[in-house]
Design a protein around this nucleic acid. Sequence first.
DNA 1: CATGAATGAGGGTTCATTCAT
DNA 2: CATGAATGAACCCTCATTCAT
Lengths: 234, 234, 234, 234
Amino acid sequence: MMHGDSKNLRYPDHRTRVGLARRERTRARLLEAALPVFAKHGADAAIIDSIIRQAGVARGTFYNYFQTNEELFVAVAQEVSNELIRVVDPIASRQDSPAGRIACGVILVLGLAQSYRLLAEFVVRGGHAAVAVGTLATEVIPRDIAAAIAAGECAVDDPVLAFDLILGPVLSAFHTIISQPLDVGYPRALAAAILRSLGINAVMARGLAGRDFGEIVVPEGSILRCGRSLGAAS
Amino acid sequence: MMHGDSKNLRYPDHRTRVGLARRERTRARLLEAALPVFAKHGADAAIIDSIIRQAGVARGTFYNYFQTNEELFVAVAQEVSNELIRVVDPIASRQDSPAGRIACGVILVLGLAQSYRLLAEFVVRGGHAAVAVGTLATEVIPRDIAAAIAAGECAVDDPVLAFDLILGPVLSAFHTIISQPLDVGYPRALAAAILRSLGINAVMARGLAGRDFGEIVVPEGSILRCGRSLGAAS
Amino acid sequence: MMHGDSKNLRYPDHRTRVGLARRERTRARLLEAALPVFAKHGADAAIIDSIIRQAGVARGTFYNYFQTNEELFVAVAQEVSNELIRVVDPIASRQDSPAGRIACGVILVLGLAQSYRLLAEFVVRGGHAAVAVGTLATEVIPRDIAAAIAAGECAVDDPVLAFDLILGPVLSAFHTIISQPLDVGYPRALAAAILRSLGINAVMARGLAGRDFGEIVVPEGSILRCGRSLGAAS
Amino acid sequence: MMHGDSKNLRYPDHRTRVGLARRERTRARLLEAALPVFAKHGADAAIIDSIIRQAGVARGTFYNYFQTNEELFVAVAQEVSNELIRVVDPIASRQDSPAGRIACGVILVLGLAQSYRLLAEFVVRGGHAAVAVGTLATEVIPRDIAAAIAAGECAVDDPVLAFDLILGPVLSAFHTIISQPLDVGYPRALAAAILRSLGINAVMARGLAGRDFGEIVVPEGSILRCGRSLGAAS
DNA sequence: CATGAATGAGGGTTCATTCAT
DNA sequence: CATGAATGAACCCTCATTCAT
């Protein structure tokens, strides 16, 4: 601790590595502190004060990580998007049809929104801006839509329309989730309705939306768990 | 009233009437000035400056009408909601089935959003808050949903779910409208998809969404025309 | 009512008289409405709104009576001062010595402040400004002081000092009155102490301050009763 | 601490110390800037602008130190109270009797008010609120009163009354000081009168109020000197 | 890199006052 | 004279951002 003792004579490397890890850690703390604030007050909220207090860093430190309010919002949205993919995609990929993957994704995401209220609030308050960034809306969903169209499962041939038919009800459902207790059958019924809107017949829609997708696991420390672990942190 | 009446011996009445008219006029000016600002910057924007400048009233005048930002937002949202009903409902009511009315409403509203860009932006930026007030979301749509369920047209029997299946795609469509040129068939295709999601068979959905609803007329001076008549005023 | 009927053919006089009476009445209403506001918020308070509301007159009407905030304050202070003199002086004048009149005045005024809390608050919040106007501080008290000095009763020969020795404790007592229940003997003890400070010997001081001054009567409608008759007014 | 220590490896400490010092300095600047404003316009004045201009700090800086107008007023009043004690008490303590200490305190304070006009104005405009905070009115004076009563020097046995008999004339004297040149004998005559009001006989009162208390010294930089050293500061 | 005091633009809000009716 | 809508100067306060340490 004082100065050069034997252990870290080759410390340039060590210092670099330690520094990077600390940087990552601080960045994560800031993102986690930001999500609840954005969830409560929207993307344009006055935030820095709450965030640095919650993250336990100094005012100036914030600017070593994010130059502007919006940069932070985008970073949070991206992190959320990535986490959703990380958690949902492995399960949805097990479905053999694009439509099945869509139904599975919708149902799992609604389940997450029910378990992690802040996630739902963040998306509802952020609106499309919370969704437009990240690869979820720009790659994953469009990919499934394209596959469904290609497979002839989707009678709606306009990808833009199909996107609105999926995202619209899900966002509306998020809003419903944060304002009232949800009927137990709601998520699967919504998924089936979305499939029907895409042109899948009612019987098949019910079948795809009725499957068992197994347990969904959100890793410890994921930003999605935000608001749960309060008190666990220092 | 005419002129005579020797001077204006009964002028307290006259004064009251003139005062009220002036008040109404100023209030309307404020609402019209507010909509574009909310459309650009969302419900929580810092706004008063822009609004009073656009409305051409003094700073203090604003507070004679609205105590808070939110009060103004709600007033605008209500005005928009009322105007939508005033314009759309007479046409939709001509449809003989609840599902037909829903399709008609969706198509007309999308048409309005295309013609009046600020309307679309206001709703998208305002999100559910822009829709939750006023009787559109609380009475008109629920009433049609209930009627459709009662008529056996709607396989979705959860009114909350049905609401999300209608509003969700429409809001998403509004977002699409403000970000890209819309395929000409998009509105009717969306309406048909919504009907399908509600459990109406594809053929009937296409039929209901394909009808001719006649010309839609937005009265001169309606808040919906906001952003069109700039320059005509004052 | 319509126009000239017999009754008021000589109505210029009548109208003038009625007008003057109404004017006086409105003015009084404004003063009575002002005192509580000054009492609660001090001389520099934002007042016009509360006052016109309480007095039941229109905004513009106020300016037909008082041009500025301060003009109103001075008017209230003068009215208070005049009323105090009107109520107290007839009783104090019965005392045969100047010192007796001083003691009597002090004791009666403290009694009034106890009965009419708003009076006490008005004076405390207004400070010397509430006292400096009006003839109480500029004529009545100085006259008694001069008489006492002339009569050889007052060892303090500086009238300014004597004035401070009387007014200071009384104002301090007002402050005490509004912040805590007063010991029953406080007013007479204070009066005696003031006399001692002026150089009157303790025995005589106690004697003068111990007399019975009879009942004090505040006329119905006096501004001093402010805050009592709430509900009686329209 | 000295210098060496190779660079400044432990500079967090250094930073903290420097930061604290700067904070204290800024706070003092604000208090010094505030006193004259309160002195001119009273405790409820709209002030922040004048204060920050005079103190030479930015608008936002003010709010890093005081949340409200009143908080600032209290801070100034406390500082004034503390300074008065710091300056007067060492001298008054040399008196061997409680009554002597009271007389000494009164005389010295009046002297200060004569030398430092702003002090007098601040107290007069602030009224009892300017005196109620701080230990002067709540501890020092009551302690002397209690001691005087215990020593049998004070015939007034109600501490509240005794307090009013001391504070009242002094405040009134402050008012006199700011409105007219004071007779040279006024302070000692007032002190003697106060002692008489407390029940001390005239001869002793004159004796105690006639002593020589030596030179009173107000330290450089004390808030009491406010309005004197303008230009001396940065 | 971290710190946090200072900044000041950018917004909000009040309220005495005016003036057409 | 009474009315009250409109006015706008003069305040208030926040919070993203900078920078010396």
